[in-house]
Every structure is written in C-alpha cells, then in structure tokens.
Amino acid sequence: MHPARSLILFTTLSGLGFGLMIWLGLGLPRVTGWQAFGGYLIAFALAGTGLISSVFHLGRPERALRAFTQWRSSWLSREAWLAVLALTLNGLYALTAMSGAPVAPLGWLGALAALATVGATSMIYAQIKAVPRWHHWTTPALFLSLALAGGAMIAGQGTLGLIGLAVAGVVQVLAWRGGDTRLAETGTDLGTATGLGAIGSVRAFEPPHTGGNYLTHEMIHVVGRKHAAKLRRIGAALALAVPAVVILLGLPPLAALVHLAGVLVLRWLFFAEAEHVVGLYYGKR
C-alpha cells in the first residue's frame, strides 16, 4: 500500500494524543489547574493535528461531514463519531480538572472513548481482507499498545510506559512474523485471481496499459520494501528500545519524543509493507 503522509501522521499523532487522554482521564497522573491545561493542550494538539491531517487524504474534503452517517456499518464512520465523542468528553473533563474539581467518572468515560477511537482507527485497516497483512488481531493490538505506551510516556508514567513498550514490542514481532507469510497462507495467488490456476501456472504477460493507474499508485508500493529489514530495526530501536532506556534514566517525556520518531517509521512500514491482493493482477506484490 502507498504510505500516504496524511495517514501516517494521522494514525501516529492521534494515537499518541488519545493515548495521553486515556491516562489523564484515569488520573494517572491526577492533574489540576495549569498542569491539567498543559497536559490536555498537548493531548488535544496531537489528536487534533492527526485528525486534521486525515482530512488531507480525502479527494473531496468539503464533504467530510458526510462520513458521520454510516456508523452502523463503517469503521471509518464509527471512528469519526468516537473521535468527536472522545474530544468532547475529555474537553469537559479537562475543564473540570482545570477548575480544580475534576469529575473522575467523566475522565473515565473520556478514557474509554479515547481507547475506542484508537481501536476504531485500527479496525479501518484490520477489516480489509484484501490486505492479508492487516487483516489480523495484531493490527488493533499494535495500534492500541503503541498509543498506550506513548501516552504513558508523555504523561510521565515510567512504569506504565515500560509495560506498554514491552507489550507493543511483542505484538510488533508477532505482526511482522505472521504478516510475512499471511498472503501466502490465504491461498490467494494469480491462479485464483484469474481462475486460470486449474489449467497451469499463470504469469502476468502484458499489463493493460503502459503507464500507471490509481490502483498501481495506491495499492502496489514496492520501493519501500527494499530496505524493509533495516527500517524494521531502526523503527523498533527508536519506538521501543531507546525509549525504554530513556525511561530507565528517568526521563519519560524525552522518551516520548524518540518514540514518536520511531512510530512514524513503524507506521510508514505498516503501509509500505502491506501487500494488496490486486497487485497479483499486475504480476506484483
């Protein structure tokens, strides 16, 4: 899949922002007054920047409000509703916290809504059966654990950050190991794609056109896979290993900055490494 900048920024930044809201809402740490203002400013800036950059992925952003209509069937629509709900609940809780009298249940509801928003974001990808690498429980697990770990670090919660990083590390390794073979495991190949597999081995002989098209630009991204192994190591180091060391040195917020850079690399790979089965029709992966 094409690693679109708007989507990498959206999933990374909103994940961190909502992750921070989860911990602040749970009272970890319990913030009031100017501390609450500062904490929620960072959370809203991250989530807001992420959500705004997602709009740049739309062909017709002026119609974006229509995305709220199909929450019964569409994860993208659910995500839009949950994001608004999370921002509203956390905004209200932030106001009570700033006034010095935080209403704890409001914070818990806000935390739950923020968690659900990250979950819905991840389901947009996990639901796509045509991208076998994404169509797996590790996709929501990875999005949620990275959001929780990143949020905990910004919130200055060293221990929670370490636990989050450890979980995210295990899930990331599982996602890579399983993901590398999942396309082959689905049984989908050029033989089933064309239905000609019963006759013999099928090879793409001639594409329909000499140039590219929307499908080849959007679904078939092969350039980034060249350095995938190196980028996995760089991403894992920046997102997981280095922040863990920095937390142990007693600087969780600094760890969060390194983590952010690493998650951007991991998220770039999340898209770049994902193979859409339509690539088979073009003799590519």
Partner: peptide, 12 residues
C-alpha cells in the same frame, strides 16, 4: 463520495 478511497482498498 468524499474520495477517501477506502472502498478501493476493500475491493480485492
């Protein structure tokens, strides 16, 4: 249509 492209992703 908002041109989000998700339907094109979903189509194998």
């Amino acid at each position: 249509c908002i041109g989000c492209g998700l339907c094109a992703w979903a189509c194998p």
